[in-house]
């Protein structure tokens, strides 16, 4: 554990908590892509299957349980409790265009051809693109509420901080994992445009609005 890894995890934790609290307190999931949330649930479940096979630490197990729990709570709130506020029309990204290529890629490029390993690899690939339906929704409506922007910023920062963690581990521990690194770079790059708008607009107190 190093400072980059810890900050990354806390940022990730902050993101999922912001999202659940936002939906719960405003009694609305307007502006949130249910499709991205479904993809994240798939990511957590396929990656954290090792919860039942290997024990790493109390920290590791608790975080995994929280991420899976928060993810399912979000889906429940969006598709059941506050269903009426879910903005279907703007959430029109076709997730099969993300699922199919990531499944194929995981079958082709992995470290070991075992069920757990392929699913882990698939979750890494899928996570790198899972935010696309949400970003697509923001670009379609042309704006995002501040709280949604904070959520996206925390969620995007998490993998960026992991990149720093991997650079650190490469030098300090002679340790690297190419699949995670390349996917992490892709994932972080996808947020760049959003990061720019967040820093230049939201942090200056303005609403995140895309240029017409």
């Amino acid at each position: 554990m190093n400072i980059f890894r810890l900050s990354g995890d806390l940022s990730h934790l902050l993101a999922v908590i912001i999202l659940v609290l936002k939906i719960w307190t405003t009694r609305s999931c307007a502006g949130i892509s249910g499709k991205s949330q479904i993809l994240f649930a798939i990511v957590y479940v396929t990656r954290y299957l090792d919860l039942v096979t290997t024990f790493v630490s109390v920290y590791n197990t608790s975080m995994k349980v929280i991420f899976i729990g928060a993810s399912f709570a979000t889906i429940y709130l969006m598709y059941s409790k506050f269903k009426a506020t879910y903005d279907h029309n703007h959430d029109s990204f076709r997730i099969e265009f993300l699922l199919a290529p990531t499944v194929i890629l995981a079958l082709l490029i992995n470290q070991k051809f075992t069920v757990l390993e392929v699913l882990w690899t698939f979750s890494i690939y899928l996570e790198s693109v899972a935010i696309l339906p949400q970003l697509f929704m923001v670009s379609k409506t042309g704006e995002a509420e501040s709280i949604t922007s904070h959520y996206l910023f925390a969620l995007g920062s998490y993998r960026g901080l992991y990149l720093l963690n991997w650079i650190y581990r490469y030098y300090a521990e002679d340790h690297y994992e190419l699949i995670a690194i390349v996917s992490g770079i892709v994932q972080t790059v996808l947020y760049c445009d959003f990061f720019y708008l967040y820093i230049t607009k939201v942090l200056k107190g303005k609403k995140l609005q895309l240029p017409a």
């Binding site: 990730h12 790493v56 882990w120 690297y176 994992e177 995670a180």
Partner: peptide, 10 residues
């Protein structure tokens, strides 16, 4: 350098 799994990560 070892290209090993980062299964201790999240």
């Amino acid at each position: 350098k070892d290209n090993v799994q980062t299964k201790d990560e999240l």
